[in-house]
Design a protein around this nucleic acid. Structure first.
Length: 254
DNA sequence: ATGACGAAAAGATTTCGA
């Protein structure tokens, strides 16, 4: 079984690339973030033509998430139950016996801002809910665009970006608190090339210079960890014409 | 200190992302 997560930064723009990628990487589950389209605009036919069904939780202009699956998605949940939110950020479903949560974590914009407060509250609510899901579903995967780096190894310029958004202690506390629920950072279960990032700014030739951040993650429960045989970032789509600024992260289970 | 790039809504600039 293979799972992947990819922030596509507009599915309207990136649909051909997502279809191409699926042909080359026929994963069982692909979590998409930043669709930037409403449910009625979702290209179901294009995906069914290549063997995927889609659970969609869209939104106009911003946010929007989907779960593409080969097998049917069961017990679907949209957003964090009990957390009142007008932004479409979370889709959860059981696929092939694995509880899969695809999430687009809030950006937070700037420490101290209203959006940063929202991010903190969202993270608090997410953790309480994931704790419950984990108790019911030992086989659990939480993947998506976290908009948080674990530590300096996830940051191309740790000194220059210290305490800036994605790199603050407050955000990293919440990431560690998710780990403390009994989750594991999938990528670091395996040796990775140094300076492995999942996002690069469009500006200033950041990708070419590998000036990036690792903010897209796949976290797995103990039971899933025991099955993981590989996890990697696929940088190839970032080299395309009109790429997303994020690269997919892919995990293989035995 | 700012903008640099890209996407989208609105309607050519502005807001947001990260």
């Amino acid at each position: 079984m293979q799972l992947a997560t990819w922030n596509v930064n507009s599915l309207n723009v990136r649909l051909p690339q997502v279809l191409d990628w699926l042909q080359a990487h026929p994963v069982d589950v692909l979590a998409l973030q930043e669709l930037k389209l409403t449910d009625d605009k979702f290209p179901h036919e294009a995906f069914s033509a290549v063997g995927y069904q889609a659970q969609v939780f869209g939104q106009k202009t911003y946010n929007g998430v989907a779960l593409l699956t080969k097998a049917p998605a069961q017990d679907v949940v949209r957003n964090i139950p009990g957390f009142d939110d007008d932004q479409s950020r979370v889709l959860c479903a059981t696929v092939d016996g694995v509880r899969v949560i695809g999430a687009y974590f809030p950006n937070g914009q700037e420490p101290g801002s209203e959006k940063f407060d929202y991010k903190m509250h969202w993270l608090e609510a997410l953790r309480a809910w994931v704790r419950d899901e984990l108790a019911q579903h030992p086989q659990l995967v939480l993947m998506g665009d976290y908009n948080i780096t674990f530590d300096d190894d996830d940051v191309w310029d740790p000194e220059g970006l210290r305490d800036t958004i994605h790199c603050t202690e407050e955000e990293r506390y919440h990431l560690r608190a998710l780990i403390a629920l009994g989750l594991h950072d999938g990528l670091r279960l395996f040796p990775q090339p140094p300076k492995s990032y999942s996002w690069w700014d469009y500006r200033d030739f950041a990708f070419r210079r590998n000036r990036g951040l690792r903010i897209d993650h796949i976290l797995v429960s103990d039971a899933v960890k025991a099955r993981v045989t590989a996890c990697e970032i696929d940088k190839i789509p970032r080299k395309n014409e009109r790429p997303s600024d994020h690269a997919p992260v892919v995990m293989t289970l035995g």
